[in-house]
Write a protein that binds this DNA or RNA. Structure first.
Length: 311
RNA sequence: GGUGGAGUGGCUGAGCGGCCCAAAGCAGCAGCCUGCAAAGCUGUAAAACCACGGGUUCAAAUCCCGUCUCCACCU
């Protein structure tokens, strides 16, 4: 049997707990379920408080994969995640275990769940393009892209330096007009039961604000302090994490405590918005209100249906 | 008690006599997204009788007077 369950949605809606609940529910049916983490910041060892990572006890004995598997200085990319997560999921499935993909990292979820092939990459070319961008600016780079690959250029925002660079990188490597776009969301890698958690935005924003404050109370600053010697400042991905970047700014005196917390709350809310704008387009998702008390049983019966159909 | 400064949209904040039926940013709302995606990027609605009262002026958010509030510093 090959079952695959995914729990997605904006941050702060209880995805992790739901993942555990689903695994526990499966257990009562004699089926093993294990969590495959798809939160790009929970990959990092040592980043716990600011990523709202479940503690060992909170996991209630349910095995978690791809949690704490990267060092703070490692770069994380969706393309690489795909090459790790897919074989892992397949392996679990061949062992009769139901993988439960849990996380809100949009592109990472898509990289696993959809027909999604990444174009090649070349560190040297990339580095020189990045340097060039700094020197000549976006508009010049964009013009260059227009000349080399008009189709690609037409899809990219002329001010989005990062994406212009990546497009140029691919064009340079392949010599083709890359013209890539996001995969068709109706074409799944595997049949999947996708569950989405969401709810009233105003209340979520309020909740995320409180969460930011709580992170500081729980010692986020100390956590970040302890990550400095092992290189969080140098971590290309990790240093950009919401909360961590602000804690670093506070440590450096660039932000006051209050400002750091405020900015963290603000960025988190904005992140939640972008997550919604992304996930809303996925027609496979079965949405539930995270505040609705009856969501649990409704979700579990969906799970039963899914397992029954495939099992 | 004294001196100085400040009171502008939900917040920050520009304007300091006519171009102000008042900029901008943030928040809000919407969206984009193929190797940093908790990143990067785009678009956009509404919202201010410019603390209150009085005056000067053809004309005041802008000048004057008073009141209140806040912040500094002084005693």
């Amino acid at each position: 049997m090959t079952s695959l369950i995914a729990v997605v949605g904006p941050t702060g809606t209880g995805k992790s707990d739901l993942g555990i609940a689903i695994a526990k529910h499966l257990e009562t049916k004699g089926i093993r379920g294990e969590i495959v983490n798809c939160d790009s910041m929970q990959f990092y060892k040592g980043m716990d408080i600011g990523t709202a990572k479940l503690s060992h006890d909170e996991r209630l004995g349910v095995p978690h994969h791809l949690l704490d598997w990267l060092n703070i200085t490692d770069e994380s990319t969706a393309a690489e995640y795909q090459t790790v997560a897919r074989p892992l999921i397949e392996d679990l499935q061949t062992r009769g275990i139901v993988p439960i993909l849990v996380g809100g990292s949009m592109l990472y979820v898509a990289a696993v769940l959809n027909e999604f092939g990444f174009a090649a990459r070349d560190a040297e070319i990339r580095a020189s393009l990045e340097a060039e961008l700094l020197e000549v600016g976006e508009s010049e780079m964009y013009r260059k892209l227009q000349k080399l690959a008009p189709d690609t250029a037409s899809r990219i925002d002329p001010k989005n330096g990062r994406r212009i660079v990546r497009a140029l990188e691919v064009v340079t490597i392949t010599g083709e007009d890359f013209a890539a776009k996001l995969p068709d969301l109706n074409e799944s890698w595997q049949p999947v039961l996708e569950i989405g958690l969401t709810g009233d935005r105003a209340r979520l924003v309020e909740r995320l604000g409180k969460r930011a404050e709580l992170m500081w109370q729980k010692g986020l600053l100390e956590e970040v302090q302890s990550l400095i010697p092992i290189g969080i400042r140098e971590g290309k991905t990790s240093s950009h994490a919401i909360g961590y970047s602000q804690a670093l700014a506070e440590i450096d005196g660039r932000l006051s405590r209050e400002e750091a917390i405020g900015e963290t709350a603000r960025l988190t809310s904005r992140y939640a918005r972008r997550q919604m704008s992304w996930f809303r387009r996925d027609p496979r998702i079965n949405w539930f209100d995270y505040q609705d008390d009856s969501r649990g049983s409704a979700i579990l019966s969906l799970v039963d249906e899914h397992i029954g159909r495939l099992g």
